[in-house]
Design a protein around this nucleic acid. Structure first.
Lengths: 114, 114
DNA sequence: TGGTATATGTAGGCGTCCTACCTATCACAT
DNA sequence: ATGTGATAGGTAGGACGCCTACATATACCA
């Protein structure tokens, strides 16, 4: 175990993982482990990306045609699968952002702070 | 059917329904159907609250002690179960709002718009 | 020699939501 | 009178997305 005690609370809004991964891949192709680290660090460790969520998500993105992958070598010299966002993936990301903002605005109106 | 064709897209962020219901109940005790309408209308019909989501959610809230209910009569003269938020429910609502804002801030940082 | 970080994955379970259904009452139009 | 739509409450079954836990392997360092 790398961190202190306490039940690691589930800090990820359901349905946002694909968006976060696609956004991360707009910067550069990355392997899964690095994608997770990037999301966790940019979020100041508020978000956690478990392997059991990450790899199925990456599999989904490929099946939908939003990312491709190929084996490569990480900076540390280990084998790693590098993921690249596709043009369809960029379009999809735009749609997910729009939808997210739309729903978020709606939530804020219900919460009386729009 | 009351609305036009097309697969009614799932417009509700997973995990936010309890928060939206509790927030609605801070205004006044309401019955389930009216809660759903209130959320839908305040959200400009962006959010939809299906009965299959609503009633299990209300059941959850009662089991957790965040709301109580009693039978009453709606303005239209029909029998209706009125839900009231408890003090514990108000505390819970505060926690859910804090958590939501924390995660939202984190997402915005990852999406590079914090 | 063993532990930690890196790296990829799978299996099984769980909660939340949706679809689809059912019942019932009341208002209103046909 | 008949039926349609809005109001009102509910259940059953399944899909989906995430988590926990496990399994494997390599590189590096103490």
């Amino acid at each position: 175990m790398s961190h202190s005690a306490g039940p690691s609370r589930n800090e990820l809004l359901r349905g946002t993982l694909d968006m976060l991964i696609l956004q991360t891949l707009t910067l550069q192709p990355l392997h899964g482990y690095a994608i997770a680290q990037h999301i966790e660090r940019l979020s100041d460790d508020v978000l956690t990306v478990e392997q059991g969520s990450l790899y199925p998500a990456l599999e989904r993105l490929q099946q939908k045609g939003w990312a491709t992958s190929e084996w490569g070598e990480s900076p540390t010299g280990r084998r790693a699968r590098y993921y690249t966002i596709t043009p369809a993936g960029r379009r999809r990301l735009g749609e997910e952002i729009s939808s997210f903002d739309r729903v978020l605005g709606a939530i804020n109106r219900v919460m009386r702070r729009a």
